[in-house]
Design a protein around this nucleic acid. Sequence first.
DNA 1: GAGTCGCCCCAAAGCGCTTTGGACTGAGTT
DNA 2: AACTCAGTCCAAAGCGCTTTGGGGCGACTC
Lengths: 341, 341
Amino acid sequence: MNLRQLAAQLGLSQTTVSRALNGYPEVSEATRARVRGAAIAAGYMPNPRARGLATGRAMAIGHVIPTSTSHEMMNPVFGDFIAGASETYLAAGYDMTLTLSGDADEADNYRRLKAKGNVDGIIVHGPRIEDGRIPFLTGLGMPFVVHGRASNVGVPYSWVDMNNTGAFRRATDFLLDLGHRRIALLNGLEVMDFAHRRRTGYLDALQARGIAPDPALMRGEEMTEPYGYRAARAMLALDAPPSAFLVSSLISAIGVRRAIEQSGLTMGRDISVLTHDDDFSYLSNGRDLPLFTATLSPVREAGRLAAEMLLRRVADPALPPETRLLEAQLILGASTGPAPS
Amino acid sequence: MNLRQLAAQLGLSQTTVSRALNGYPEVSEATRARVRGAAIAAGYMPNPRARGLATGRAMAIGHVIPTSTSHEMMNPVFGDFIAGASETYLAAGYDMTLTLSGDADEADNYRRLKAKGNVDGIIVHGPRIEDGRIPFLTGLGMPFVVHGRASNVGVPYSWVDMNNTGAFRRATDFLLDLGHRRIALLNGLEVMDFAHRRRTGYLDALQARGIAPDPALMRGEEMTEPYGYRAARAMLALDAPPSAFLVSSLISAIGVRRAIEQSGLTMGRDISVLTHDDDFSYLSNGRDLPLFTATLSPVREAGRLAAEMLLRRVADPALPPETRLLEAQLILGASTGPAPS
DNA sequence: GAGTCGCCCCAAAGCGCTTTGGACTGAGTT
DNA sequence: AACTCAGTCCAAAGCGCTTTGGGGCGACTC
């Protein structure tokens, strides 16, 4: 069933039917009602390709996910982020298309997306420090919003991010207040901007108390469970082991915990662990009784906000860049305690 | 840059340029080379909407993900599955679109997808027992492949699944061979077909040894970490606690482990744990030294296979349904041992 | 009663591509 | 010399929609 058939069936022109359906004022409410009725009765849906051709709009948003920065890893943040974004798209009648990109052809991917023209805007995932994609996309002239930020990018751009520096400064302060002096940082890959910022927050807090950071206590890798395990295991075996771990992901924190317990120590008593928690739907830290003390920042919410922001920019590309900084909450759990003396 | 401009620039007709680019034999190889050269020089990409309008094909595959069967949970399997599928799509020039559906409007979602016509085929995620979507989609006449299966569906259909029944029968047998008699099953939601099959495998194995299943040792919920924790905790507090846990997901198994250790027991010695492992990229069970004994079935591989199968069906919708059953490997880890006497 | 103005509606021109149905060569056949 | 035929190319229709630029008509003004 297409427009022409529907129009014929109603004894109206295609123009009128189209206008009735799209809410134009040139059509009487009576006709509009009649048209609407017939449309749903016939199960009519306008063909989005034809509509897109005519309007120049695709009614779709593209998400480009680097298949992680180094390996074959699928970023676990991604699932919940798009779950949030998708609510927004659904309400606005937008579709969502996915492109996984294996790093190499990054810029090319975006160029192709633009040339094909089947998305109206792009969400950029996993920004790195000085991420070249951002000036590139600005030059491309396609609306985009970054989930996260990139440092040292000359141009202004739109982003939704959490306050990584602030959260990790506060988390480190919290551990320092508990008397910890040797605090390990198990960060994400530090080419990733969020990891870079977290490290900055951590270093700031140490410096403010005059504590020199120990390179042996700082790592930055992809935030898997095994990474947390191995790193913690190695650090606990040092001559001067840390008394606390600051971890960038709940997933890695689970590995840290495994290492701690395997060493015959008790988390929260012998060794403290404070982790960032992206609030994945399947990996709750416990609502009533959180296992880990954590900096909490729901990634799903970030997805919703980023999608809304992008849709605004698609509607009016001339809008000045918009930014949104989310503050993480510091949630008290059972994994932290005073430094043992 | 569009076809017309490119044709004008080359002094050829649109027809010829189109045919040259699409590999039709009616054009000389010399012209074809010239056209190709000009196209890439100009950065020309055919507009997929226009092409879709003309051909009736969308060159896109739709993935419909029920936002879990009950809650707001995003299925963690999904990320790695599409990472696998996306390789296939990329190579074939297909795009991937995502629709998260909140259960309620399931059928409607598919109908809309069909009516809009911007996908050529659909991957169905998270099939439930007697899933109504399957006969519905068969009726719709849109190619689809199910990731998983649905029991008691009258019609034949295409699927890629792992042998859930076999894997859990074997896993249960393995635990029985170690002398365990009270084996708990922490399953996924049992309206989900995969969970139903796993339970069948578990019950089969028990029955074969004449052991009556104990309802107090069987649960089926969404496979989060807290679920594993709470369920294990409750069961360990029973008068007759289990000596082994059979768990449907590594994520929940992590929770089980937490409960075991919190009870002052040692996993692998006092209590055995055997889990299914979907081989998420961020949650490795350890390659060299697996923590958990597990039935392993890479979900990424399943994604690739399902996508390939779907693309075949899109190319030739008359193809008889195709199915692919993957066997899980049983990986020995440190989490299992003989039943304590 | 002529002119003006809203209100409804329509015909037709695109949007950028593919594909049908030829047309025009020059070489090979008879 | 007329005919066929493969090899190249083209004009134009059509995919299903939106949107421009009117057109008709009753209700107001003056």
